[in-house]
Amino acid sequence: MYAFEIDRPMTLADAVKALGAEEAQALGGGQTLIPALKARLAAPARLVSLSGIAGLKGICTADDGALCIGGGTTHAEVAAGAGAYPALAALAANIGDPAVRNRGTIGGSLANNDPSACYPAAVLGSGATVVTTNRKIAADDFFEGMFTTALEDGEIITEVRFPVPAAASYQKFEQPASRFALVGVFVAKYAEGVRVAVTGASEEGVFRWSEAEAALTARFTPDALEGLSLSGEGMISDLHGSGAYRAHLVGVMTRRAVAAAG
C-alpha cells in the first residue's frame, strides 16, 4: 500500500468535513477497498473511516413500513436484524464469509457498486431509496455502470430505505473462489408490479430485466418466463464463464427466484 493518512471521525458532520480534504476517500468496512489499496488499484492521500460513527448503524421500520438500514450497518447485522424483509436478510447472510460479513457494510458495498456484488440487486430489485448526506436517490437513478454511481465526491450513504414486498427471493450462482455472484437475481413482488434485478452478468453492472418483470407482473410463476431469454452480448465474459453462459444463467436464476418466492 502507498502511504496515506487515516481519520476516524465520530460524527457525520466531522466525516463530511474530513472528506473535503484533497484526494480524501471514505472507508466503509474496507473489505473491498483494503484489498484494492494493497493491489495499488487505489491511492488516496487520506482515508476517512466511517466505522466510528454510531449514527450510521442500525435497522428500523419507518412509518410507511419501509425497512431503513443505516449505511454503516454490517452484513452480519442485516442478516440478524432484517427479519421484516427475509429475502434481504438471507442475501446479507450469504455475502462473502462470516469474518467479511462482520466488517463489510451496506453503504460501502453500494458506493463501490461492484458488478458482481449482491446488495445492488436487492436495492434495485426493491426500488429502494438511497439516502445520502445531501439527498435521496431512487435506486433506478443510483447505479450508473460498473463501479460507478450517482454519488458525488464527499457524499456519504447514511441510510437505505427498502419498501417491503409481498414476496421476494434472491438466488445467487456463486463463483466458488470469491463467493461473489457469477450471476445473482433478485425478484420482488409489489402491489404495483414485479421487479427483477440482475447482478454479476452485465458489463454495465446491475440491471433490471424488464421483459421478465412484465411477464411476472401478469403471472407470478416460473412458467411465465417460458420463451424469454437474454442475449450474451454485453455480458461479462471471463475465465469463469462466457457471456452466453451468464445470459443463460440469468434465466435459470430468475426461475429459481420466482419458485423460491412462491
Binding site: R8, L27, G30, I34, P35, L47, A99, V100, R103
Partner: peptide, 10 residues
C-alpha cells in the same frame, strides 16, 4: 474479523 483487512487505527 480478518486482521489483514482492517486498519489498526480502526
Amino acid at each position: 474479523v480478518k486482521a489483514c483487512t482492517m486498519f489498526a487505527a480502526e
